[in-house]
Design a protein around this nucleic acid. Structure first.
Lengths: 250, 250
DNA sequence: CTGTGAATGTTCGATATCGCACAGAGTGTT
DNA sequence: AACACTCTGTGCGATATCGAACATTCACAG
């Protein structure tokens, strides 16, 4: 894999949406990095040195509460960027950004990105629009956490993960999902068991396969669709679809 | 009250932080409006025609879930702006903005604001920074809703309302607070009763008085301080203090 | 094939909140 | 002073999830 992206092969939705001229300018400063499972890109409270345009896999944004466990507030995949808050003037990360899956990204040093943002209007607009839809995702999560049952939230989360990873088979343990959703693993076990009985997912030891995407959408709360539609409103109809959405799922 | 703000008397933190030259340019386009209790500034899904720089009282940003009740995701007071997402490129509001208290604001038509943002770098930077801290507030709320007990969340909310309104006596029923926090009124009644027994607040028929600010901070979860410190990091040490903070509370 | 560790299933008492109902207390109006 | 209405207190069965423990099943290494 080349260290710099090309406009033809880049998967990240923001980079691929750039006009050729801006893409060419920014591509030189982007360096491909492989993301290991469990790798932390940004730590809460610490400076954001690099910004990551996700190419594959997905990143969890986690709020760390002092008493104990982190809790996921948003997912970032190939539709987005980890560390985008530097564009708003933040220097340190308020959240933890962790790769849950293994994957890849193009990364750029924060000062270089800010330099481009000041002189590349399309990139700036795309990053601001992405900031907005990420904000909507977080806001919906706040309401969802307060009001929806775990079974619905689990279905929503699996849909979001599917969208962002682009593959129907996810390497995820129930233990990990429990931390993301802020509940006990045993509660996830029960909810996941129901989904499996209903035939919409299948899982065996850390591998979850989505068998029935529509069934999963029906099992999820409205929050999935609310976020997806905001993406579509700002990025167009196909912005949120995984690259391999057309491929058969099973 | 004059229809346009003056730099000497404006209370809104973003407007008052503008350099004189930019303030003068934007002041002409700002029109003072009184906000009635329960008035809706923006409706979910509808265009943001006007942006409001809050002068007094506070605005709730609410996510409306289809099944029923709205749920508050953030509070906006004189430190901020309602409708700031237009700066990120959004045209429609994803949330409901409602005035919970009665108050006042300076409002500006969205196209006029966007015109200024393009040519007033300080205003743009301030609005982007405010967008960031509001985002942090929403993110913290997402975690808080999932993990913290109502008694802590209630204390946090009262602190935030106090900061944003600038007065220790708030006209708020438990019924209203219950909707904001997404719980039953009877649950609020129990939590508020504990706080009153402990002597940190007092309330009678829709009036809540904060008697012991420090006691309330101790009763609140870390989420209050986490958001406040992010404000301080981006707006300076005093950005988040109510104008009347030095005045005795009781 | 077999053992080992990880992942998952299951149970159970405890708890916070729900959802609802009704009583009591305060405020403003006539 | 009496009334009406709003706001608040309280009780109670139902429920989702907690928190913890233990049993079981699967995948992989040797």
């Amino acid at each position: 894999m080349l260290p710099h992206p090309t406009h033809a092969t880049v998967r990240n939705r923001i980079l691929s949406a750039l006009p050729a001229e801006e893409f060419k300018r920014v591509a030189d400063k982007l360096h491909r990095v492989e993301l290991a499972l469990g790798e932390t890109l940004h730590r809460a409270g610490e400076p954001i040195e690099q910004v990551y345009f996700v190419e594959s896999g997905f990143i969890s944004a986690l709020t760390v509460l002092s008493e104990g466990e982190p809790l996921e507030i948003g997912l970032i995949g190939l539709e987005g960027v980890a560390g985008v808050s530097v564009v708003l003037g933040a220097t340190n990360s308020y959240s933890e950004a962790m790769c849950q899956t293994g994957g890849a990204a193009y990364r750029i040093a924060t000062p270089a990105l800010l330099e481009f943002v000041a002189h590349a209007p399309h990139l700036r607009d795309l990053l601001l629009r992405y900031t907005h839809v990420f904000h909507v995702q977080v806001a919906q999560t706040a309401a969802c956490n307060a009001h929806h049952e775990l079974s619905q939230r689990l279905a929503r989360w699996l849909l979001a993960a599917h969208d962002r990873s682009g593959v129907p088979e996810l390497s995820l343990t129930q233990d990990l999902i429990a931390v993301m959703l802020g509940v006990r693993r045993s509660t996830v076990s029960i909810a996941a068991g129901s989904l499996q009985k209903a035939g919409v997912i299948r899982y065996q030891h850390g591998k979850i396969t989505i068998l029935d995407r529509v069934g999963l959408e029906n099992a999820a709360c409205e929050c999935y669709e609310a976020v997806a539609s905001e993406y579509r409103a700002l990025f167009g109809e196909h912005a949120f679809e995984p690259a391999t959405a057309a491929a058969p799922l099973a």
